[in-house]
Write a protein that binds this DNA or RNA. Structure first.
Lengths: 406, 406
DNA sequence: GCATTTAGTTGTTGACTCAAATTATATTGG
DNA sequence: CCAATATAATTTGAGTCAACAACTAAATGC
């Protein structure tokens, strides 16, 4: 048994280097698959011998498998390596109106995906979700599941193990995570939806090139995920990122969070619908996509409502940009479907009057299903993320011990 | 010569472990000096033999020296180790009205300190500053200087090598850093004043225990330094932290930055003076300390002006707290002199109506001279901070090469 | 067939941590 | 005074790892 380090400081052992380099190689394979050992050595700067040892270990750990044999103008043919996509992750995106459940492989490709309604009855919805997950596990029983990742419209408190700040969901506090874990027998990871989107960008989007960016999710409310110094900012008790509930006007309308004049009161999908209903002096059961369609078909009042919303969106973003100086602002939500309309409007809000430096690029999220894809990253973080190497070693150790004792 | 790694990924070599552990031991000595090798081994979790090798290296590098011999109830006496305080750092705090220059040892203790006026003439002031630094170097010629650290009321752009956003200073852009470097022959590090205060907290205050906190400097303007995930958030082009220039009211009074209704327009020392002058319908040459004294002696209008300022301060802090979920908010500035008056008022602003979680502690900065002490940390970061180990190895290499070639 | 080129493996070396043995130096109790 | 004991610090040997170099494997072109 390896002794656990009870001290506060984190010292390096002889295996630290291997752990780091294992992570580097594993992530290079993930990003550039299929890739040969020789190319891994070239791109990482490690020796070919070292790469061979590490890839051997990764194949033994079943993270990597041999792919096809390459073909070159001269010389011995390379054997390509790629991730073992028999390893899969169960994912879910819990939203106030609708929940999406799916299965994805380690590359973030979805093997299966379905939706179910989210009701106000928290227990019932949770059990239905757990049942769906169990069902997907039997459908894809040929895969090895690494865990369950769920994006939530709120915060998960480590200390109380509860979803603690989800005003748009309206559920009472209960053991959501534990319920799913017991029903599925899998480890469950919860993360705020905006943070999940940020993870998706880093893992399946531009990668670690952009070290400072902000994700703004615009739907029923407004969520923000902040990536700074190449890391997700979680804050004390994982509560960081609630810029959606910063008051723009302390005397403004009431927000679902209990405050007044929060940013999301002015800039969410709900806000646009409210603007529209105010202007037509009635309130039918219009949805935000309906409003988008109306504006697209030339309804001036719908367009005006959306313009007000986008203006408010830009105002709040200026706060984020002043504070974080991100390189990009990534927007997630239904309004990105008409990016041609909204993109330039938001960009122009950020292009002028900001203190110093270059204004950030504003762009819609890469690909669809950012939330769901982010939860894949959430689960994979433990195996692929920084300092994952040593954890894997420990795991391998204990497996070996089990074999020896059996 | 060690080959430099041109690849994008950062791989570990056989020396990585030593680099990490060297940093751990060096910082333990810094924090807990005087300390014996045996205690270092106990507290770090490293083997005593490893600690001996590392401390030997640190003594060879002249970062550490032998201290007094200890005394224990039984057994061999330990030889204490401590930092070599013959190594010193030149520090300066450039403020719109006054500049402080000083010399500090590696422990952040000031050996010498003096002030000079900051004028609108940037060249003249810079040359006067350089002259003061040169003078201090001759006065303390028995020390080895590691570099110059300067805190500035603005931002230093790496790309242009200029101070780029310092509206309260009012200097044109010019090569401030290069001028000082040429005049002194030392490497100069510049950092925003609020960030410097944050560094001071981590290096000479509570340490790495608090991983998420925010520093708010209140003087001519308002500056913010954000520490999240145990790191200083610098953002793209080091522009992060300009929350002082987030507009609270887009139609508010003009700010020195060119915007309207910025937070600092409502919550800085200047704002309090403006409130007071408005209420007495005149504007004499009152300073902020004068205003504090007036309020303390019972002037109701002065008290009211300060209350308005503190209220605005709290309003902006709520934005920071919502966004970062810091564990503490640290306040720097003249107003902390009457903390008994302002502390509870600010705390109560943050205690109610914030989404979920615990409200952060609000407290004044530890010790005095936070800005200056922070610049000490700024210079030491390179030697003591994470990943410093390998840099030191490179440096030692080149020194050895020089010796060999001579 | 043979030089050439590229992929991947094997064996050696040096750097490092760790564990255990050893040395140094103190106190205490006969 | 001398053994027993306790603690600090060093020395020595073992194991792990990356770097390096030499090697084998497998392809192409003349």
């Amino acid at each position: 048994m390896r002794r656990i380090n009870f001290t506060n400081t984190q010292v390096a052992s002889s295996q630290t280097a291997r752990g780091i380099n294992r992570g580097v190689v594993l992530n290079l394979i993930r990003r550039r698959q299929p890739i040969s050992r020789a190319d891994l050595a070239r791109v990482s700067g490690l020796q070919r011998s070292t790469v061979s040892l590490i890839t051997e270990q990764l194949i033994r750990e079943r993270w990597v498998v041999h792919g096809p044999i390459g073909r070159l103008p001269r010389g011995r043919r390379p054997t390509f390596l790629r991730l073992n996509d028999r390893r899969a992750i169960l994912v879910a995106d819990l939203r106030p109106a609708q929940t999406t459940v799916g299965v994805a492989d380690v590359n973030g490709n979805f093997l299966s995906q379905e939706t179910m309604p989210t009701t106000r009855d928290s227990r019932l919805t949770t059990e239905a979700l757990a049942a769906k997950i169990r069902h997907l596990m039997t459908v894809h029983s040929d895969r090895v599941f690494e865990g369950v990742g769920i994006s939530i419209p709120g915060r998960f408190s480590e200390s109380s193990q509860r979803i603690v700040f989800a005003p748009n969901l309206g559920w009472p506090e209960f053991d959501f995570k534990g319920t799913i874990e017991q029903a599925t027998g899998m480890r469950v990871e919860l993360e705020n939806a905006a943070n999940a989107c940020a993870l998706a960008e880093v893992w399946f989007g531009h990668g670690e090139k952009v070290r400072d960016f902000v994700v703004v999710t615009v739907s029923e409310g407004i969520g923000t995920g902040v990536f700074a110094n190449g890391q997700l900012i979680r804050g004390f008790n994982s509560m960081a990122g609630e810029f959606g509930h910063v008051p723009l006007d302390p005397n403004g309308p009431l927000c679902t969070c209990g405050g007044r004049g929060c940013w999301e009161v002015y800039a969410s999908n709900r806000a646009a619908l409210r603007y529209y209903h105010e202007s037509i002096q009635s309130s039918d059961g219009l949805t935000f996509p309906d409003l988008l369609a109306l504006a697209d078909s030339g309804d001036p009042l719908a367009a005006k409502a959306l313009d007000r919303m986008v203006h408010a969106l830009g105002r709040g973003m200026r706060m984020l940009v002043s504070g974080f100086a991100p390189e990009e602002v990534v927007v997630v939500g239904e309004l990105t479907r008409q990016w041609r309309r909204f993109g330039p409007a938001i960009q122009s809000e950020l292009d002028v009057g900001l203190p110093g430096g270059h204004p950030p690029r504003v762009r819609p999220a890469e690909g669809t299903m950012a939330r769901l894809r982010g939860t894949v990253a959430l689960v994979l973080q433990k195996h692929f993320g920084p300092s994952a190497g040593l954890q894997e070693l420990e795991a391998e150790d204990s497996r070996e011990n089990q074999v020896m004792s059996s």
